[in-house]
Design a protein around this nucleic acid. Structure first.
Lengths: 218, 218
DNA sequence: CCACAAATAAGGCGATAACCTTATTTGAAA
DNA sequence: TTTCAAATAAGGTTATCGCCTTATTTGTGG
């Protein structure tokens, strides 16, 4: 071991960050060199600190993990990002992996899985928490051929569906994703056509059914 | 310091527990003596381990934090429970404090606040994370009398809430109920004020939570 | 290199939502 | 009988939704 693995922690919960930092400090091959509590900060820190591994949550106020991931990889395609989140639905996982996340661990995983993930990702490998790997394989099996191309949403459409169901307007979503409100509207309209939804109430109930949003949150 | 503060950690995310344990281990007056990942386990551990302080999340699969809190205090009215959660709405906070939680800290708080909470609760005091304390005081100011008359809906308001959550417009609801769209609008606005909801998405999620609509219907 | 999916963006349009104020009617409880 | 909660209704304003068309850019696969 020549040098420690330099980790950047990105999560909106300061207590979780403090806990993870304390946990990682007990491993002598890993070192936390920075923290961020939202996507914008993560991008800045990634640029300045050049961490070996970025551990990032998906759901954050302000810029979310998926958007931040895209910006980070755009600036530095070699960045290694390990997603650490509560959500294990394929609707969350697949867009993140397609966007280039190097690993995916659920918060309910054991701390040893988390450490495994950091090390694997640092060494240039992928790491998927086993239940996530299973889910990804299943999604590949079925998803390839069938699954109604009419109803299959693009990652962007799915992302915007979730934000609508969480109560954001087109303008708010546009600001969060750094795109035009008109573009949000296009994704929104196409998504509604594909799923045959016609108003916000139907969108929310669909999202709740598919576990894309938790009605208890916010 | 005669003895360490014995802490039981209750949260469904193993990684968070591992992190908090590592964090608390760096304080020499605090010691984690047990962990639980749901309410049932928490009750069992509280009975067996007799911790000085129980740190517990609210949202967990299986028995949630509020129910577990009630059982624990029923068995041992002297138990000291510090709630640690992501949710800062008064709908979450007030029932927990009424049920006898000794403290309340949000996950976005600093780790120093968390430690303060553990020590305060251990010494028999209450600890409310400042924004929570503010919210509780405000709730006491307004809600003094009883049972939240502010939030109690009239039958008409509840009827219209349900129809909105099912996706109907004011005009459609007006025709269904043989009243003016403007009357529907008044009920709608009053209902939203009472429940502090601000758009259709929030209305639907509220209705789903309260089982006023089934997201699988229609 | 070309085809295609995906994301980006603009313009316009009528309907609807979200919020305000004010006011009348009605039935039930004090 | 008087008071009060509830339901009824109308007026207005601004923002947003829902849907339409058209078009450029970007990246991937054949």
């Amino acid at each position: 071991m020549t040098d420690k693995i330099k980790v950047l922690l990105v999560d909106d919960h300061a207590i979780l960050r403090a806990g993870l930092k304390a946990l990682l400090d007990t491993y002598d091959d890993i070192e936390v060199i920075g923290e961020a509590e939202n996507g914008e900060e993560a991008i800045r820190q990634a640029r300045e600190l050049k961490p070996d591994v970025i551990v990032m949550d998906v759901m954050m106020p302000g810029m979310n993990g998926l958007t931040a991931l895209r910006y980070i990889l755009e600036e530095n395609p070699d960045a290694r990002v390990l997603m650490l989140t509560q959500y294990g639905n394929k609707e969350y996982v697949l867009p993140l992996l397609e966007a280039g996340a190097a690993g995916y661990v659920l918060k309910q995983a054991a701390d040893t899985d988390f450490i495994k993930g950091i090390r694997a990702v640092y060494e240039g490998n992928s790491y998927l928490y086993p239940p996530i790997a299973k889910l990804v394989l299943e999604a590949l099996m079925e998803g390839e051929d069938a699954a109604d191309p009419e109803r299959r949403l693009t990652p962007r459409e799915r992302e915007i569906l979730i934000l609508i169901a969480r109560g954001y307007t087109n303008n708010e979503i546009a600001k969060m994703l750094y795109i035009s409100p008109k573009t949000v509207d296009v994704h929104r309209t196409r998504m509604m056509n594909k799923l045959n939804l016609h108003n916000v109430a139907e969108i929310v109930r669909y999202a709740v059914r598919r576990r894309l949003v938790d009605p208890w949150e916010d």
